[in-house]
Simulated assay, not measured.
Amino acid sequence: MIYLDANATTPMLPEVVEAMMPWLTEQYCNPNASYRGAKAARKAVEQAREQVAVWLGALPEEVVFMSGGTESTNTALKWLARWVGRKSGRVVTTAVEHSAVLKVIENFAQVGYAVEKCGVDSGGRLDLEAFDEACARAEEGGGFASVMAVNNETGVIQPWVEACEKAHARGLAFHTDAIQAMGKVEVNVREVPVDFLSLSAHKFHGPKGVGALYVRSGCRFEPLLRGGGQESDRRSGTENVAGIVGMGKAAELARLWLEAGRDLRGLRDDFEARVVGGVEGVTVNGDLIHRVSTTSHLSFERCEAAGLLILLDEMGVACSAGSACMTGKQQPSHVQKAMGFSDGKARSSLRFGFSRMNTREEVVEAAGCVVKAVEKLRRVQGGGGTGPVMVYSP
């Protein structure tokens, strides 16, 4: 299989698996006990906390380990609604957030909060003027805002730094979903003073089932999960030691990768150029300047994405039609609709996600498979052709 769905999850790096193995086998003690084996587990958890904190530019005590991105975003948003949003009852976000954010905020609307989902331009970038106006309306009495750093479907980098500045200027607390940004763009909480930030290990070559919430020092915070008082009474539940160790190692490796100036722009651009040059009627979606190097979002005229996915799967290429969390749902993506896509264009779009594990040979083969799949589907559906019909400049 040529795996091009890294936005859904990334394969674990060998170094991450190696770091986790002792904690999955002979090192099984509960890190909250008092004997020698437990103390070793506690030391491993705290080392991982340090690794994540260094990567974020945070203090170790500002990192709270959780079960993943969904718990992290739910925890932050539900606390913010209870604390800073309780007086004004206003929440500001974007129309293109991940469902782990939107579903929570839509629930707030059902219980009386005024929710504003700010629009995006045709490239999928937040309208900052509309966002500022929405923050102004939420200013009286206090409210909060949540803006993702990178969109999970298109790979578009949102102006989350500017959004944080505007929200704070209006006195609003600010949360960012940085789950798709980590390991792809620079994220430093000392330079961008977000109040809360969510991340998930399996998006940067770590294990599934573990993530973290950054909570800025000085921010009032109470846990969503109560019980044994783990994580300094900020997230109860016995820590997933092996997962946390893996997350720490993945964070360290991702930091070194970015510091070395590495990215996947060459692979992505080669893939797009081959597909666009090999078959007509292809559109590269999203802002072509403000996007991560790991994502290619394409639309194919006269093709249904569902059919292309079947053909590509048969050819050994794994990709997706959008968020993995929405797989199986027939309605057009809310992200693409917010960008102004017609229903037809939305249903003809595929997302290709590249990772550090992909090779150029795989990308070349995958691009050829995409071209063949499009041509085959168009023949079956009656019509089509080959040859480039658009100018493409990566």
Rank of each mutant, 00 (worst) to 15 (best):
M20A: 04
F108N: 12
L197P: 02
Y113A: 01
K166Q: 10
Q230I: 00
S355E: 09
H202Y: 13
G384S: 10
F221H: 07
F354K: 03
T359V: 01
R226S: 09
G89A: 10
L13C: 07
R235H: 14
E50V: 04
M339K: 05
L59G: 10
K376T: 12
V210S: 14
L77R: 03
A138D: 11
P207I: 06
A81P: 07
A373L: 05
R86W: 13
V282K: 02
M247C: 13
A109C: 08
D263G: 11
S67F: 02
K43L: 02
T386E: 05
V371P: 08
E375K: 08
V64S: 02
G387R: 10
H205E: 05
R36Y: 06
S323V: 05
L56F: 15
N30L: 00
V84D: 15
A318I: 10
A6N: 12
Q336E: 13
S34H: 08
A149K: 05
S200Y: 08
D177N: 06
P207H: 04
S34F: 09
L258A: 12
G227Y: 08
A338F: 03
R356C: 01
A114H: 14
L172Q: 03
L199C: 11
P207L: 02
T283D: 15
Y392A: 01
V120C: 07
N74D: 10
Q381M: 13
N7K: 02
I105Y: 09
R356N: 06
A163Q: 03
V92Y: 07
R36H: 06
Q110K: 11
L311W: 07
P159N: 06
F300A: 12
H334P: 14
G227W: 08
E97N: 11
S320N: 11
R190V: 01
S198F: 00
A366H: 04
N188I: 02
